[in-house]
Nucleic acid binder design. Structure first.
Length: 1210
RNA sequence: GCUCGAGUGGUGGAAUUGGUAGACACGUUGGACUUAAAAUCCAAUGACCAUUGCGGUCGUGCGGGUUCAAGUCCCGCCUCGAGUACCA
């Protein structure tokens, strides 16, 4: 009979099941160990050999830990919601639950056959109402939570409401999408619905209209990680971007913690790296660029350039190319042609020679440095003055030589300003440069002594000329549906001032200056100070997901969050007096190299800034871009496209005018959807600039090199490291220093701030599907409310059809009674696949608990997963979502560990090994692999079950398919040899290896050993059945150490020899080490070596074989149990102490030294242990072999590593 | 493009800290047992040269380097795989 695996395995599987051998209960006397497999989606195809690979590894580890005295939690369950069952339901009408149940039974049957030590009493299924009630429960908690950045954790929404009641949303640091600042008064007077709308911007589970991945084929929205290369992960269907009302989880609130947590877990570096990439943290700056308020202004003035000659940047646009056309050319700044011509030379001059004096002075007087608040480049009446102290009505002007010929104009200006109560003090540039301290002293003294009669302080937006522009526009803003359109192309009062002023002086701003005190914070203060309460609906602005601000001001994003059924209703964005474009850049140091700007076609400002003459083209481009599928956009990345809007931005540091383009290489979903283009140092910007003939400036050089002419470049210049050139106040600095300096500068200027941007988006949480968890949400007055927790679970109802309704709503929408008791409609979307899998490891700790998710006691005991095994396909999805889920529950005080999975092992994929036959086309003749070159053949996949060791079973092949019934074969040496190749395992390639067939032939223990023997666990490897015989042979040999050919136990009680003990303990040591480091393949080798050596020693001694049975139990549990019982033990072997390695048995009397000459091994020398180095050297040099190799040459050096090597250098 | 990983016999792979490259297994070849087959056991098996015997040369993707000594460390490439992709 011999090794009868079939009998043994069935016997022990039954025993384990009946005795609940692997049931784990809280036991405070034992240390816990939690081993978890990523639970499977039970597909209709059942398991193939790739699936159990990780389960076998984790099972070995679990069993090993039990032998070491740990209380091991090793559960298994099913991720039962999934698209395939629902697709099947749509096709056949079979309820997905039935399909799923059937598949689970099949999975269970297959799993049982492999002999896993799961505690099946803890099985969970995500589709079980008793399970998903806790998924729903968590969702309710998320809905009622917000993220407090001050405490850096999620908190109950009630605390937020209290804050609103007392302070409005001022002084709050919360992750949110609420753009508006509101007062307590406003909050307290708001209706419930209005309050709910506001709260929606703070909830961790929220409803919003966002750009989603819509898959028409699947009829549902998908999360980012469910889309691969523009196609759905399941099914490979095209995905498009669509604006839809969706539930999302505010996972972005946790971005930094998710990133930081990676440092505390023991995961493979590639997976951590993938998560880091997915979270995508980049440090940089948010910078505001004002929009140049003038139509059709063609001048591009990057730093250092002048206006002469060819008009740059718009070479491809006809209407700006003709300077001689009086209709076109002078229209630069809107209305006043004369002013432009009068000033243009002056402007050119100024741009060529920016003064440093102003910057220098500013450095010394800015903020309150001299005891007075000084502002610079401030708009006073129609003029921009260099510096002003508003409280003292004092203007400080700097005049270089350059100004001198402007004396007349300045005189006029002086008069105008003085009429308004201002006094002006003037300094020469040279005064500032040479006698700075004196200048400052003079200013201070002047201010100290000046008495201002009217102490009215001019707030920004006010001027002295009567009309309070800023306030007016604020009122207009909320007047109603209609905006009052001013006659001037620029709709905003403040910009008119700037505009006028530019006409007047067209001043080039020195470095570090801005165009006139645009200061967001002050504007807001003004609004608040007026205690002006805008009528509702207020505009609430959604920031792009993933955007994280260091400072809590500024949120100027595009997507509106609106409750269902609500419309935007003509609300206009507040604070638009200044049209500005905010960009995110990781390289603020290259600001001086920015020569144009690009907006995403979807950017909200596009329609507002586009000039009349460009409108048609721009609109055509926007609609073209909108109608492209994601996939098209991605595959056509190399094609450069874009359109000039006709508008210009102002470089805040150089004052240079940057043409604003739209192009789809700028993504609306990242950063602010707008960029400053630095073609000199960004390859995409470079390509774009070349394509549209836009200027390129070099601002970084490698240290020690000289700048070169960008016209000669083939690509942008790498600028990660180097020294700044052409960059004003940062010229000469190294990149790192320049970044910091620039951020400080723009922060001072109030036009930006250092910030961190995350690529991570909030997780879109609704699916327009039937087969998923229903949301515990109902709608009242169009706003979502959560069901009472006592009403959970909200069970998934039966439906007639699994298809969307005719209106395109989810299947649940077809139900007329999908309502609460009170008659409120319930949410008709369902939750996505990752909902149920995000917290299942916690439920396993206490799976039967009817009162709560899991008890505190269970959580305190089991804590988190010590070893998590699964595929790396979940790196960006499940592993992020469940970490988020856990951190949220951690914030609630429920989960006691901040990270759910301490150690993660990713098993590699098992690829298929396809076999091929070679047919002569048009015939039914098949040529053996090595003869195929002599024929013209076509390669066809053949079922791997018909092939053994690459030899085709020709009879089987003929029977395989009707068309091959009369196949003829051209054989080599009497055999038909098949070709082979490693491919993905798939039905169509006929290379799927089903474990059941192997278990039937060789048994589960062989399968377990062989899957491990195949290669390193974490590596991808092809499945090849050829080697399985060797493992099977090994088990049969093992058996024969214990039994003779007549099945008689031949184990003796004789004392083991030194040799035998050495073999055993060598193996104990090796197995122990290999399991600890998850090197299961070398473990199997060690067993083989052990058995081979014991065979050779003809050892049948209990002293050796009893520990050996224990040792192999984790790998081959069935045979181990059987041997253990045969040796006279009762009960399971599974918790018996693991054999201990005893070092003394490995002690050797001698060591065989490899002796090398100049590093090349030449011969071996057996020397006793314990010799001194000198003795070893002497013995080595005096040996006959050594003399032969030395050939009488002198020995230069001898290296001896005791018990390792002898190397003789000659 | 970027990030990560990997390249070792005919095949899967081993070499854990720089110290005998190719453990273990498959396959192949030869042999034993058998009427025969299966099963089992024994031997050989990196390539090349030599072979009467002793033996020798080369060899871990390629090219350099460090070292007494490199599959292992460093520099520069090549190829394959995975992830990600106009992410500013």
């Amino acid at each position: 009979m011999g090794y009868d695996f079939d009998r043994i395995e069935k016997k022990w599987q039954k025993y384990w099941s009946e005795h609940k051998t692997f049931k784990a209960d809280i036991n405070h006397d034992k240390p816990k160990f939690y081993v978890l497999d990523m639970f499977p989606y039970p597909s209709g195809a059942g398991l193939h050999v790739g699936h159990p690979l990780g389960y076998i590894a984790s099972d070995i580890y679990s069993r090993f830990k039990r032998h070491q005295g740990f209380n091991v939690l090793h559960p298994m369950g099913y991720d039962a919601y999934g698209l395939p069952a629902e697709q099947y339901a749509i096709q056949t009408g079979t309820h997905p639950e039935i399909t799923t149940e059937k598949n689970i039974l099949r999975y269970r049957e297959q799993l049982d056959k492999i002999g896993f030590s799961f505690d099946w009493d803890r099985e969970v299924r995500t589709s079980d109402p008793e399970y998903y009630r806790w998924t729903q429960w968590t969702f309710i908690r998320l809905f009622h939570s917000w993220y407090n950045k001050k405490t850096d954790k999620a908190e109950d929404i009630s605390a937020l409401i209290t804050h609103f009641e007392i302070n409005g949303n001022a002084g709050l640091e919360a992750t949110n999408t609420c753009e508006e600042i509101f007062t307590a008064e406003f909050w307290n007077n708001a209706s419930e619905k209005e309050q709910q709308q506001i709260l929606m911007h703070y909830r961790l589970a929220y409803l919003s209209e966002t750009m989603v991945n819509w898959c028409p084929e699947l009829g549902t929205v998908l999360a980012n990680d469910e889309v691969k290369e523009g196609l759905s992960e399941r099914g490979g269907h095209p995905v498009e971007k669509k604006l839809m009302m969706q539930w999302s989880l505010r996972i972005t609130a946790y971005a930094q913690r998710l990133l930081d947590g990676l440092e505390t877990v023991d995961w493979s570096e590639p997976i951590k790296e993938m998560q880091r990439n997915w979270i995508g943290r980049s440090e940089g700056a948010s910078v505001d660029f004002e929009v140049w308020d003038g139509d059709e202004s063609p001048k591009v003035l990057p730093f250092g350039e002048d206006l002469g000659g060819v008009i740059e940047g718009t070479g491809n646009t006809e209407d700006s190319n003709n300077e001689n056309d009086p209709e076109n050319t002078p229209g630069y700044y809107g209305t006043d042609k004369g002013a432009w011509f009068a000033n243009k030379d002056y402007v050119r001059e100024l741009r060529k020679n920016p003064t440093d004096a102003e910057a220098l002075l500013w450095e010394n007087v800015r903020k309150d440095r001299i005891g007075y608040r000084i502002r610079r480049q401030h708009a006073i009446e129609a003029y921009i003055v260099d510096f002003v102290c508003l409280s003292k009505k004092t203007i400080i002007e700097l005049d270089g030589d350059i100004h001198d010929y402007q004396a007349k104009a300045d005189k006029l200006r002086t008069e105008t300003l003085e009429e308004n109560g201002y006094s002006i003090i003037r300094f020469k540039n040279s005064d500032v440069n040479d006698h700075l301290e004196e200048v400052i002293k003079t200013i201070k003294t002047y201010l100290d002594n000046k008495i201002v009669e009217d102490l009215k302080v001019l707030l920004f937006g006010e001027d002295l000329g009567g009309v309070k522009e800023g306030t007016k526009t604020t009122e207009e803003r909320y007047k109603g549906d209609e905006l009052i359109t001013p006659p001037h192309p620029s709709p905003k009062g403040r910009e008119q001032i700037i505009d006028y002023n530019l006409n007047e002086s067209t001043k080039v701003l020195p470095f570090g200056e801005d165009l006139g005190g645009v200061n967001e914070a002050e504007v807001k203060t003004t609004d608040k100070g007026d205690s002006f309460t805008p009528p509702l609906p207020i505009a609430i602005w959604d920031s792009p997901e993933g955007r994280e601000q260091i400072t809590d001001k500024n949120l100027n994003e595009s997507t509106k969050v609106l409750p269902l059924g609500e419309d935007i209703g003509g609300v206009n964005k507040p604070n638009q007096q200044t049209q500005k474009i905010t960009v995110f850049t990781t390289r603020p140091d290259t600001l001086f190299g920015a020569t144009f700007m690009v907006l995403a076609p979807e950017h909200e400002l596009v329609s507002q800034i586009t000039s009349a003459s460009r409108r048609e083209k721009v609109e055509a481009y926007v609609s073209w871009a909108k109608n492209r599928s994601e996939r098209e956009r991605m595959t056509e990345v190399k094609n450069i496209s874009g359109e000039f809007t006709g508008a210009y931005g102002v470089n805040p540091l150089t004052g240079g005018k940057l043409p604003i383009w739209i192009a789809d290489y700028v993504l609306s979903g990242y950063g602010t959807g707008a960029i400053m283009a630095v073609p000199g140092h960004d390859s995409r910007d470079f390509a774009f600039a070349r394509h549209f003939d836009l200027p390129i400036i070099q601002v970084v050089v490698k240290e020690g090199e000289e700048p070169t002419d960008p016209a000669t470049w083939d690509d942008s210049i790498d600028s990660k490291e180097g020294v700044m050139v052409n960059s004003g106040f940062i010229t000469g600095m190294k990149v790192k220093e320049a970044i910091i300096t620039t951020i400080n500068k723009i922060q001072e200027m109030g036009i930006g701030y250092g910030t961190i941007n995350f690529r991570l988006h909030d997780a879109i949480f609704s699916r327009q599907r039937y087969w998923g968890e229903p949301f515990p949400i109902y709608y009242k007055d169009g706003m979502p409310y959560t069901l009472d927790e006592s009403g959970l679970p909200l069970k998934l109802p039966q439906v007639e059809s699994y298809l969307p309704t005719e209106q395109g709503d989810p299947p649940l929408a077809a139900l007329t009674d999908w309502k609460t008791k009170e008659g409120y409609p319930l949410e008709t979307n369902t939750m996505p696949g990752f909902a149920g899998s995000s917290g299942y490891y916690l439920r396993y700790m206490d799976p039967q608990n009817k009162e709560e998710y899991f008890s505190a006691e269970a959580n305190q005991y089991w804590r988190n997963v010590d070893l998590y095994v699964g595929g790396d396909e979940h790196a960006a999805g499940h592993l992020i979502y469940s970490r988020f889920w856990n951190k949220f529950l951690y914030d609630l005080g429920m989960a006691c560990e901040a990270e759910p999975f301490k150690k993660l092992i990713n098993q590699g994929k098992i690829q298929g090994r396809s076999s091929f036959v070679y047919r002569i086309p048009g015939t039914n003749k098949f040529v053996s692999h090595n003869l195929r070159k002599d024929y013209d053949t076509q390669r066809l996949h053949v079922d791997i079950d018909l092939v053994e060791n690459d030899v085709l079973n020709t009879k089987g092949f003929k029977a395989w398919r009707e068309e091959y019934k009369n196949a003829e074969f051209i054989l080599e040496e009497g055999k038909y040899i098949c070709g082979w190749e490693v491919e993905k395992m798939s039905k169509s390639k006929h290379n799927v290896q089903n474990p059941d067939a192997l278990i039937e032939k060789y048994g589960a223990d062989t399968l377990r050993l062989y899957e491990m023997f195949l290669g390193p666990l974490e590596q991808d490897k092809p499945w090849d059945t050829n080697g399985i015989e060797g493992v099977f042979r090994f088990l049969k040999r093992l058996w024969r150490l214990y039994f003779d050919n007549n099945d008689q136990l031949i184990v003796t009680n004789e004392n083991a020899t030194k040799e035998e003990l050495k073999v055993l303990h060598k193996t104990i040591k090796k197995i122990h080490e290999d399991i600890e480091r998850f090197s299961f393949n070398t473990g199997v080798s060690a067993f083989m070596i052990c058995v081979n050596e014991l065979m050779e020693l003809n050892c049948h001694k209990r002293e050796i074989l009893e520990p050996l049975a224990l040792l192999i139990e984790p790998y081959a549990p069935h045979v181990a149990e059987e041997l253990w019982q045969s040796l006279g033990h009762t009960g399971s072997i599974s918790t018996v102490d693991f054999p201990q390695y005893v070092e003394k048995y490995l002690a050797e009397a001698s060591f065989q030294y490899p002796v090398s000459f100049n590093g090349k091994m030449r011969f071996k020398l057996d020397l006793p242990m314990g010799l001194t180095i000198a003795e070893i050297e002497k013995a080595a040099l005096e040996s006959d072999e050594a003399k032969k190799w030395m050939e009488g040459k002198p020995v230069r050096k001898v290296i001896i590593v005791p018990n390792r090597i002898i190397n003789i250098v000659i």
